[in-house]
Simulated scan of single mutants.
Amino acid sequence: MAVVLGPNRYGKAETRLVRVVRDGGVHHVKDVSVSSALSGAMEDAHLAGDNAAVLPTDTQRNTVYALARKHGVDQIEDFALLLARHYVDSQPTVHHARVEIEECLWGRIRDGEESRPPGERHSFVLSGPERRTCVVHHDRDGSTTVTSGLRDLAVLNSTGSEFFGFARDEYTTLAPTHDRVLAAAVRARWRHVSGDCDFGASYSEVRRCLLEAFAGTHSLSLQHTLYAMGRRVLETRREICEVRLAMRNKHHFLVDLTPFGLDNPNEVFYAADRPYGLIEGVVLDDDAPAARFAWE
């Protein structure tokens, strides 16, 4: 039996960075978690304990802070590209860099804050559990893939959803329904055609497409809604060539109120958090080039 070293990478995970920009009396907050992973000509670190090719993970953490100070952090995709290119260009042994960023979305507590007195222009509130995400892959030959996304986007339709005609066996107890609450926690990722994009505008528009398709689709299943959401993005945004969706079904069960002499015309529900249905799928432009790098 021959024992060999397989694919490998290493890096610094979840470097937390909060950057405050003081634009006169108005402050802006960027709150991100950055993970980097490097691979290349690093076999000797595994096989011989020779670390000459290894850029310390502490250095990767420090690079995040230093480049944030030098270049700022605007769109997370642009910052991820900056970091990935820096690692590959500065280290001859690094042939590939993967940078993942997750952003907490802080909004202003007060609308129209720019017009308020200076002492009232620095108050923020976290916009729930939703996070903006991106993953950038950059190779020594110049190949780059940018994937944007979001997670924990909670959506709910109080009607306009059905589920019937499904397969049954001896263990099936679920009753068909033609009017149900459809709620889900959405994770969406979308691949850009190129790394040259107005990522901020693209993110806002893709998110809008996802929400409009969820709200506007008379759903026959969560799978049906998932495809409609991905299709809306691809038909509307030409800079996107592939959408991956994972939808965690947040089940709402009608409560039986007959023991109390009450009816329940689809008004009182029990919301269960687990177990949950998990529906996943990919919607893509069949003419687009295949992704060179794995999404994960």
Rank of each mutant, 00 (worst) to 15 (best):
D179C: 02
R180D: 14
V181H: 07
A185T: 12
V186N: 08
A188P: 04
R189A: 15
R189I: 05
W190N: 03
R191P: 00
R191I: 06
H192W: 07
H192F: 11
V193F: 05
S194I: 09
S194Y: 07
D196W: 03
C197M: 02
G200C: 05
A201N: 12
Y203V: 01
Y203W: 06
S204A: 15
S204W: 02
E205K: 09
E205R: 10
E205P: 01
V206C: 12
V206H: 04
R207P: 04
R208S: 15
C209Q: 07
L210I: 08
E212G: 13
E212K: 11
E212Y: 06
E212T: 09
A213I: 03
F214V: 06
A215N: 05
H218P: 12
H218M: 08
L220M: 10
S221K: 04
H224K: 00
L226Q: 08
Y227S: 03
Y227A: 07
A228E: 03
A228D: 08
M229C: 13
M229S: 08
R231M: 05
R232K: 12
L234M: 12
E235F: 03
E235M: 11
T236C: 10
T236K: 09
R238G: 14
I240D: 02
C241S: 15
C241H: 09
C241L: 10
E242L: 14
V243K: 02
